[in-house]
Design a protein around this nucleic acid. Structure first.
Length: 830
RNA sequence: GGGCUCGUGGUCUAGGGGUUAUGACGUCGCCUUCACAUGGCGAAGAUCGCCGGUUCAAUUCCGGCCGAGCCCA
C-alpha cells in the first residue's frame, strides 16, 4: 500500500499560511486565476464590491461579509462566468481630515489647502496598506492589480463628469436652503455628524400681544430667534387656543427690515404640554422649524451669519454672538416687562460631533441632486432587481417612502472630490470641464475643452476658449462633494462607464451589489438614484444584503462598549503557534475568549454555514473554532485516506460495473452536487455549504468509506474510481468556501487546482441523477442504511465486541438486500 | 418617539397550517476502532418570546404586547 499523497496528518493553520503566501506571491499565476479578462468570451459577472474605508482596523463583521463576497466571486468563476471582483478603497471624507487634525493638533483651515491634502493622502496610504494585507489574509480573490482609489483622478473624474451631465440636464441644481452648520468650524455638516449633549438652558416665558390686544405667553429657549419668527402655531386639538387661530401677533422684540407681525396657525407638531403650549416657529431654531416652514410654504429669515453672529434683522441684537444675543434678549424683555417667567432646565442640545459646538441651521446656497420627482421611476426600475434575501428589499422601499427633500451634495471640506465648476465675474455664467477630466477649481483655471453655460438656464453658450475674454475674472468653486456622491457611482466605475465603453455595454446593469444592510439608505439608494438619473436603468441585476457582525451577546461592536474583536487576530490565531485570546466586555463584566486555531479557511467556513444571508450574526471566536475546525479535519482526513489509493487515469470516464454501494453513494453525491450548483447559481451560500458539509462529514466517511474499505485495500478499481471522483469534484464545488484548503488537496492528489476549475463538475451517472426514478430509489436506501449501521454498531457495543470482530444474529433488512454482500463484509456478519 | 427586520433546546441554526419540530456546538455516558480521539456510538435537553384572533387544526397566518437590532427623528 503506497503512503498517502497528503503527508500532513491534519489540516493546520501553518500549512494554510504557507499555501496562502505562495498563492499571492506568484503574480502571474494569480492573475491567470483571478484577473478580469473581458475578452474571454464568457458571460461577464461584475461585482460592485464595497470599497472599505481605511481607518486603522477593519471591522471583523465587515471582513466576514467581504469573505462571503469572495465566495460569490469564486462560485461564479466555478460556474463558468468571467468575474470582475474589483478591489477598491474609499478614501475620501471627513474621517481622514479629522485623523490628520488630531495627529497634528491643528485645524484643517489653518493649513494651506495643498499641504493639508498631502498630509491626508500620506496618512490614508498607511491605513490602506494594512487593509490590503487583511484582504489577502482572509483569502480574497480580487483583481488587486486594478485597485481603484476613490481619491484618485480617474475615479474622481467620473464623479465630476456625472455632476456636469446631471447639471446640464437640470437634475442637479443650486439653491438657498437650510443646512446644519457649525459656526466654529465654519462648515456645513451632515446629519450623521450631529450628536446631542445635555446642557442647562433657560426656558423663558414671553408675553406676546395680538392685534386686538389679547395677550398670550410663548415659552422658548431661544428668545434671540424671535427676529426670525415666521409663524406662531398651536396644536389643532388644543381647545385652550382654538380661538387664536387666524389672528395676528406682534413680535415682542424690535427687528430690522421685516414685518413685525406674524399669523397664528395650527400644526400637529406642537407639544401642547410643553411650556404654554404655544410655539413660535423661527428660521431656523431646530429641524421641526425647517419642516414647518417647508410645509406652510413660509419665507425664511436669515438670523445668523456664517460666523455665528446675529444678522441685521435682529435689530438691537445684530452683530452679537448667539449666546450674547440670548442674554441681551432676556434683558430687553425684562425691561419691557414682557418676561413672564424663567426656569432653568436640562435640554439636549445638538452639537457637532467633533468640536462639541452647538450647531445652527442656516440658509446657505448649496448644490442638490433632485430626487423627489423620480421616485416612481426608481421603483419601477428596481422591480427588475433580485434581492438576496428578498425581504431586505423592504429596507430600501421604506426608506424611499420617507424621501421628501432633495439631496444636498456640497460640503465645505477639503479631502473630497471637488465640485467641478467655475463662475464668471458677474456670476451669471458658469464654466464646466469636459467629460473625463479631473479638475480642482479652487486652484486651477478651467482646462481646455471647457464649456460656458448660462447659470440659470444651463444653456450652452460656447467654448471657454472663445468666450474667455467676456467672462471677467473667473473664480473656481471651493466646495466639495458629499462622499456618497463618489460612492454612488462605484457600480458605473467598475463596469467601465466612460473609461471602457465596450465593456460597459456588456457589463451593465452591474451583476451584483453586495453590501451591509446599514447602508441601504445611503450607498444602495444613492447608487440606484444615479443609475436612474444618468441612464434610466436599474443599477444591478442582483443586490445581496447581509446583516451585521455583532458581539457574542448580539450587541453591536463598538469602541465605547469595549466589545470589539480584531479581525487580524482571529485570522492569525493558531499561526506560528499563536493562541487567540480576547478580553472583551460582556453584559456582566469582562470575559476572556480563547481559540487555538481559526485562520481564513475555518473563519470562512463558519460564516458560510452558520448564518443565513441578511441576518445579523454573532461573532464568538471560541465557537467558530469548536464548531468548524473539526469539519476541516474531517474533510482533510477523507481526502488523505483516499490519497493512499492510486488515482485512476480515467477519472472523467465512468467505468462499467460499479458495485451497488458505489451507485448508491454516487446517487447521493449527485443529489448533493445538484443542490450545491443551485445554491451557487442563486447566490445562496448557506444552502450550498450546508449540503457539502452534511455529505462530506456524514454519509461519505461514516457509511460509504466504512463499506468500501476492504474493497479499497483489495485494489478494487470501481471503489477507487468512485472515491476519487467524489473527492475531486467535492473539492471543486467546495473551493469557493475554502480556496486554500481545496487547492492544496486537489493539486497534491489530482495535479489540478480546485480554484482553477471553470465549469461546475458534471454528474458521472446522469441516469441516476436527481429527479430520476432510479436516483430516488437509491437515495431512499440512505435512511434504512444509516439505521442499520447504527443498530449493528450498537449491538456490537452492547455485546462488548470491537467493531472488527464478527457478530452473529444480525438480519439485513429486505430493502437493503442489494447491499447485503458489502454490509456482511463491513460488519463481519456471521 | 417613528419605520422596518428578527425572536425555535444552554448556544447557533433548518423548517413550515396537520403523525414523535432539523442539524451543529456544548453537556452527560460508553468506546484506543487498523484515514481521523481535531475520532466513533449513544443519551438527556424545546410548553417554537408572551397574549388574543382566524381555522376541524397554528410553532407556522393575522392583531396586540414584550425583547433585540438597523435606520430615522
Amino acid at each position: 500500500m503506497p503512503a498517502p499523497k497528503l503527508p500532513e496528518k491534519r489540516w493546520s493553520i501553518d500549512l494554510e499560511k504557507t499555501i496562502q503566501e505562495a498563492h499571492y506571491a506568484n503574480g502571474e499565476l494569480y492573475n491567470r486565476r483571478y484577473a478580469f479578462r473581458p475578452g474571454s468570451g464568457k458571460e461577464l459577472f461584475v461585482i460592485d464590491t464595497p470599497p472599505p474605508y481605511p481607518s486603522g482596523t477593519w471591522h471583523i463583521g465587515a471582513v466576514a461579509q467581504y469573505s462571503m463576497i469572495d465566495v460569490i466571486a469564486r462560485s461564479q468563476r466555478l460556474l463558468g462566468k468571467e468575474v470582475f471582483f474589483p478591489w477598491g478603497v474609499d478614501r475620501n471624507g471627513i474621517n481622514i481630515e479629522f485623523t490628520v487634525e488630531k495627529n497634528t493638533k491643528r485645524k484643517m483651515k489653518t493649513y494651506d489647502r495643498d499641504e493639508f491634502l498631502n498630509l491626508c493622502e500620506t496618512t490614508i496610504e498607511a491605513f490602506t496598506q494594512a487593509m490590503r494585507n487583511t484582504a489577502r489574509r482572509v483569502g480574497l480573490s480580487c483583481d488587486f492589480d486594478r485597485e481603484y482609489l476613490t481619491d484618485a483622478p480617474d475615479y474622481r473624474s467620473v464623479t465630476q463628469s456625472i455632476f456636469v451631465e446631471l447639471f446640464k440636464k437640470g437634475d442637479i441644481i443650486e439653491d438657498l436652503r437650510p443646512n446644519i452648520y457649525d459656526p466654529v468650524e465654519g462648515t456645513t455638516i451632515a446629519d450623521a455628524e450631529v450628536e446631542r449633549l445635555p446642557r442647562k438652558t433657560k426656558l423663558v416665558d414671553v408675553r406676546w400681544r395680538c392685534e386686538d390686544g389679547e395677550e398670550l405667553v410663548i415659552s422658548t429657549t431661544r428668545p434671540e430667534m424671535i427676529c426670525a419668527c415666521g409663524v406662531v402655531v398651536v396644536h389643532p386639538e388644543d381647545e385652550r387656543y382654538r380661538h387664536l387661530v387666524g389672528k395676528t401677533v406682534t413680535l415682542p422684540l424690535q427687528t430690522e427690515g421685516r414685518s413685525t407681525k406674524v399669523k397664528i396657525l395650527e400644526h400637529p407638531s406642537v407639544k401642547s404640554e410643553f411650556g404654554s403650549g404655544i410655539l413660535m416657529v423661527c428660521s431656523f431654531g431646530d429641524q421641526n422649524d425647517v419642516a414647518v416652514f417647508r410645509e406652510l410654504g413660509l419665507n425664511p429669515h436669515q438670523a445668523i451669519d456664517l460666523a455665528g453672529n446675529m444678522t441685521d434683522i435682529a435689530g438691537p441684537l445684530s452683530g452679537m454672538s448667539v449666546i450674547e444675543a440670548r442674554k441681551e434678549a432676556i434683558a430687553l424683555l425684562e425691561q419691557q416687562g414682557d418676561l413672564v417667567n424663567v426656569v432653568e432646565r436640562e435640554q439636549e442640545v445638538p452639537v457637532s460631533e467633533r468640536g462639541k459646538n452647538p450647531v445652527e441651521i442656516i440658509l446657505l446656497k448649496e448644490w442638490y441632486v433632485r430626487q423627489t420627482h423620480i421616485q416612481d421611476r426608481i421603483r419601477e426600475l428596481i422591480d427588475s432587481i433580485s434581492f438576496h434575501p428578498p425581504r431586505n428589499r423592504q429596507f430600501l422601499l421604506d426608506w424611499m417612502d420617507n424621501i421628501s427633500i432633495d439631496w444636498p451634495i456640497s460640503r465645505r471640506r477639503w479631502y473630497h472630490t471637488e465640485i467641478p465648476i467655475w463662475y464668471s465675474e458677474d456670476e451669471t455664467q458658469v464654466i464646466v470641464p469636459p467629460s473625463g477630466t479631473y479638475v480642482q477649481p479652487w486652484k486651477e483655471a478651467p482646462p481646455e475643452g471647457s464649456r460656458v453655460l448660462d447659470r440659470a438656464t444651463r444653456k450652452d453658450l460656447g467654448s471657454f476658449e472663445a468666450l474667455k475674454e467676456d467672462l471677467g475674472e473667473v473664480s473656481g468653486e471651493e466646495k466639495v462633494f458629499d462622499t456618497w456622491m463618489d460612492s454612488s457611482n462605484s457600480n458605473l466605475f467598475v463596469s467601465g462607464y466612460l473609461n471602457h465603453p465596450e465593456v460597459f455595454e456588456r457589463a451593465f446593469p452591474t451583476a451584483l451589489r453586495p453590501q451591509g444592510k446599514e447602508i441601504v439608505r445611503t450607498w444602495l439608494y444613492y447608487t440606484l438614484l444615479k443609475s436612474t438619473l444618468v441612464l434610466d436603468k436599474p443599477g444591478f441585476q442582483h443586490v445581496w444584503i447581509d446583516g451585521l457582525g455583532m458581539d457574542p451577546w448580539g450587541r453591536k461592536m463598538s469602541k465605547s462598549l469595549g466589545n470589539g474583536i480584531d479581525a487580524d487576530s482571529v485570522l492569525e490565531c493558531g499561526a506560528g503557534g499563536r493562541t487567540g485570546s480576547w478580553k472583551i466586555k460582556g453584559p456582566d463584566g469582562s470575559v476572556s475568549l480563547r481559540a487555538n486555531k481559526i485562520g481564513s479557511e475555518c473563519f470562512r467556513l463558519w460564516k458560510a454555514c452558520d448564518a443565513q444571508v441578511g441576518d445579523d450574526f454573532q461573532i464568538n471566536p471560541e465557537e467558530i473554532e469548536k464548531k468548524y475546525f473539526g469539519v476541516l479535519t474531517k474533510l482533510f482526513n477523507v481526502a488523505r485516506f483516499a490519497s493512499q489509493f492510486e488515482v485512476p487515469k480515467t477519472l472523467d470516464e465512468t467505468p462499467e460495473g460499479l458495485a451497488p454501494e458505489d451507485r448508491w453513494i454516487l446517487a447521493e453525491f449527485q443529489r448533493t452536487m445538484n443542490e450545491v450548483r443551485l445554491g451557487w447559481e442563486q447566490l445562496d451560500i448557506y444552502t450550498a455549504t450546508q449540503a457539502l458539509k452534511t455529505f462530506g462529514t456524514g454519509l461519505l466517511p461514516s457509511h460509504y468509506l466504512e463499506m468500501v474499505k476492504s474493497r479499497l485495500y483489495d485494489d478494487d478499481q470501481g471503489a477507487a474510481w468512485t472515491l476519487h471522483r467524489i473527492v475531486r469534484d467535492f473539492m471543486s464545488a467546495f473551493s469557493p468556501v475554502c480556496p486554500f484548503f481545496t487547492h492544496h488537496i486537489s493539486s497534491t492528489v489530482y495535479g489540478t487546482s480546485a480554484v482553477e476549475v471553470d465549469a461546475f463538475p458534471e454528474a458521472p451517472l446522469p441516469d441516476i441523477g436527481p429527479g430520476t426514478a432510479e436516483g430516488k430509489r437509491l437515495c431512499d436506501l440512505s435512511n434504512p442504511l444509516q439505521e442499520f449501521n447504527g443498530r449493528t454498531w450498537g449491538a456490537k457495543k452492547d455485546a462488548g465486541l470491537s467493531l472488527n470482530q464478527p457478530i452473529g444474529g444480525i438480519q439485513i433488512p429486505e430493502e437493503l438486500s442489494e447491499l447485503s454482500a458489502t454490509l456482511t463484509r463491513m460488519h463481519h456478519l456471521e
